[in-house]
Simulated assay, not measured.
Amino acid sequence: MLKKTAVVLSTLLLSNSLSAHTLWLLPSHYVLSKQDSWISVDASAANMTFVPDKGISLASLKLHLPDGKVQQVTSVHQGKRKSMADIQLAGDGTYKLEMANPLRFFTSYELNGERKRLMANKQERATQLPAGASKVETTQMRSRNFAYITVNSPTNTLVKLQGEGLEISSKVHPADVVAEEPLHLVFNLDGKPQAGVKGVLSYEGELYRNDAGRIEFETGADGAFSFTPATAGRYLIEASYSADSDSALADKVRESVTYTFEVALP
């Protein structure tokens, strides 16, 4: 069970399931004490937290090194229920595993009573929309799935805000999250705390619980969501933000993040 201490939100709901599959990355280890250690990573698109359902392509899986450099992960296998990767972490510091979709634009419209779509921004769509198209709307989209792994000494290069898209920040380093201690998270859009970010917090083992123990939240003006994990284990946060946009490229913006992390024993 999760013990909530402070949640800045407009609604708080318990939920047993989500309407769509969630893509998550699950490292075998989040904290290591030996250089050159290997970890395995499971990845799946699934309805239940950390219960694999559909294997996914790992072509975009990248490893961010503690110094900020990025390398492609090449030792991968895509299975029917889950995909897997093997990764060796050479030196000390905090690494970041990430699968991210680049910024993209999706235009939907109606033609002869049918809803259709094309990949184009507002400027590009003018030459691509068929005659008679109506109810035209362009959405700017971006998504990130990530997890941090620390070898020996935690470092901060990769956990600092980059100021682009939807990001999560905290005064507690990912390697230092402990059960029975409050965790305060801030959801930022383009480097600033963002109200209206909707998310779900869940944790491993829900297959064996009558109550999945999920918490749905929506951030207030400070962009914050706080909770106290009652038990150690592996947790999942999936969050998204959607709003109208007055940019030259899109009518709406939609950002999403999926973050897995470990809570250590007190």
Rank of each mutant, 00 (worst) to 15 (best):
I87L: 00
L111P: 04
V257K: 00
E216G: 06
A232R: 05
E114G: 09
M48L: 12
G233Y: 05
G165D: 13
R254E: 09
T157Q: 03
L58T: 09
F146S: 03
I39N: 01
S170F: 08
N188G: 12
Q128I: 13
N156E: 14
L111R: 13
F225S: 01
H173L: 04
D190W: 06
T228E: 06
A43H: 01
L111S: 12
G196C: 09
A120F: 02
D246I: 14
V253P: 00
D67G: 07
G199C: 00
A43C: 03
D222M: 11
V51L: 00
S134M: 10
G68K: 03
F227G: 12
H173A: 07
R104W: 09
H77G: 09
A45C: 10
Q128D: 09
T150S: 11
D67L: 08
A120P: 05
A179L: 07
D244H: 13
S134E: 15
N112Y: 04
V253H: 02
E167R: 14
S143G: 14
K69H: 11
S169Y: 06
M141W: 03
R125Y: 15
E262C: 04
E124V: 10
H21I: 15
S15C: 10
S10P: 07
N47C: 15
N112L: 08
I87F: 00
A179C: 08
F105N: 03
L61N: 00
K3C: 05
N121W: 08
V73F: 11
Y109A: 07
T219A: 07
A6M: 13
A133L: 03
T22A: 12
D211T: 04
V136W: 01
L26S: 11
T127G: 04
V177M: 10
K69Q: 13
G91I: 02
D67W: 10
Q71A: 14
Y241D: 10
L65S: 09
S240A: 12
E206Y: 11
W38M: 03
E181S: 05
N210P: 05
L118T: 10
F227T: 12
S37E: 02
I39Q: 01
L103M: 06
L9E: 15
Y109C: 12
D53N: 06
S108G: 11
I215G: 13
S242D: 10
F187P: 00
V151Q: 11
L25P: 02
G220I: 13
N152W: 01
T258D: 04
V51D: 03
S40N: 08
H173P: 00
F227L: 15
V159D: 05
H64S: 08
R214G: 08
T11M: 15
S57K: 05
Y235E: 02
G196F: 06
Q78R: 08
L166Q: 09
L58W: 00
A6R: 09
P154A: 05
A239L: 11
L65R: 06
K122F: 08
S134V: 13
Q123N: 12
V200M: 03
A20D: 02
I39F: 00
S153T: 10
H29Q: 04
Q78F: 07
G165P: 15
S44A: 11
A239P: 02
T94R: 01
D67I: 14
W24C: 15
V51K: 01
M1E: 13
G223C: 05
Y235H: 03
E181W: 04
V197T: 05
G223D: 10
D244E: 14
G163M: 12
A20C: 04
E238C: 15
E204K: 04
L189P: 06
S60W: 06
P52E: 06
S134G: 14
T127N: 06
D246L: 11
